[in-house]
């Protein structure tokens, strides 16, 4: 087997990234994040009768709910046709006839798309941080940076799932269906299933197993990562009683999130190799 070479990975990643910059994908998604984040920062508490910035912890908690819906969807849309699209267009064989291995192609695709997603996420949410700079302490800025970083990780984990979908699916239409199904499952259905299991078992699935089951969903890992690291919010959400302190370690949760990035890519490579 040929050794991994960085050059073809960089060439493919560079093309993917440039394509997203040229077709203004990065700009549009970045502006979308900025707009949503600003609206939430200023009007997030409108239901309680107040308008204006209420502090970083509540803003992050509100943004977390938004990001859980939005970022996975954007990542899945971004990556679902990465491989199957090339295959359907007929350009995959041409790419693979070059001195590039299948692993290098997968990594190049992933890194290029991940770069586009990361830039739009950091720029989009970063713009809000700049606008709020006067109202943020260093500690607030630290928390906000953690939120942005975890949003990037969340995006990458769903992008990794999208790449796996694009390898497994035989057609683009199937890939898009599968990507949407994954979004529904992880963002909408998974928590309902857990709650259902909790109720159906009469609480037998309790605090012992429940927190670990949350780790099986990158969206939940992201939620836990952002909510449990914010003291006020943790109390506010009343979740401190069901999630053990030892699992709420940001490094551990970051590691789990990273595993969610690596595992689907490994699965994709396993299927993609000849």
């Amino acid at each position: 087997m040929a050794r991994l070479a960085l050059r073809p990975i960089a060439v493919i990643a560079g093309k993917e990234f440039r394509d997203r910059v040229r077709n203004r994908w990065v700009l549009v998604v970045g502006l979308l994040f900025t707009a949503f984040a600003l609206v939430i920062a200023y009007f997030g508490a409108a239901q309680q009768g107040t308008v204006g910035f209420r502090g970083i912890e509540i803003t992050i908690a509100s943004l977390t709910s938004l990001v859980i819906y939005l970022v996975p969807l954007i990542a899945l849309i971004l990556g679902f046709d990465a491989i199957v699209g090339e295959r359907e267009r007929g350009s995959l064989d041409l790419l693979l006839s070059y001195p590039v291995t299948r692993l290098e192609l997968l990594l190049g695709k992933f890194l290029g798309l991940a770069g586009a997603l990361a830039v739009s996420t950091v720029a989009g949410f970063g713009a809000v941080a700049l606008l709020l700079a006067r109202q943020l302490s260093w500690n607030d800025a630290w928390h906000y940076a953690g939120f942005v970083l975890s949003s990037v990780l969340l995006g990458m984990s769903f992008l990794s799932l999208a790449i796996a979908v694009s390898v497994f699916a035989s057609e683009r239409t199937r890939a898009s269906g599968l990507a949407i199904a994954l979004w529904f499952f992880f963002v909408l259905v998974f928590d309902l299933l857990l709650l259902g299991a909790l109720v159906a078992s009469g609480g037998a699935i309790g605090t012992d197993v429940f927190p670990y089951l949350l780790l099986l969903n990158p969206a939940d890992v992201f939620r836990v990562l952002n909510i449990f690291t914010l003291e006020d919010v943790r109390v506010f959400y009343g979740l401190a009683t069901v999630f053990p302190e030892r699992l709420a370690d940001p490094w551990l949760l970051g590691g789990v999130m990273s595993a969610w990035i690596v595992a689907p890519l490994c699965l994709a490579y396993w299927r993609f190799r000849i």
């Binding site: 040929a2 007929g90 350009s91 041409l94 006839s97 001195p99």
Partner: peptide, 21 residues
Amino acid sequence: AFREVRRHLGYLPENVVLYDN
């Protein structure tokens, strides 16, 4: 020798699809 062989090889597929953008 995978890379060395590929570097000296050119391929034109039947239905060549290049990047429109």
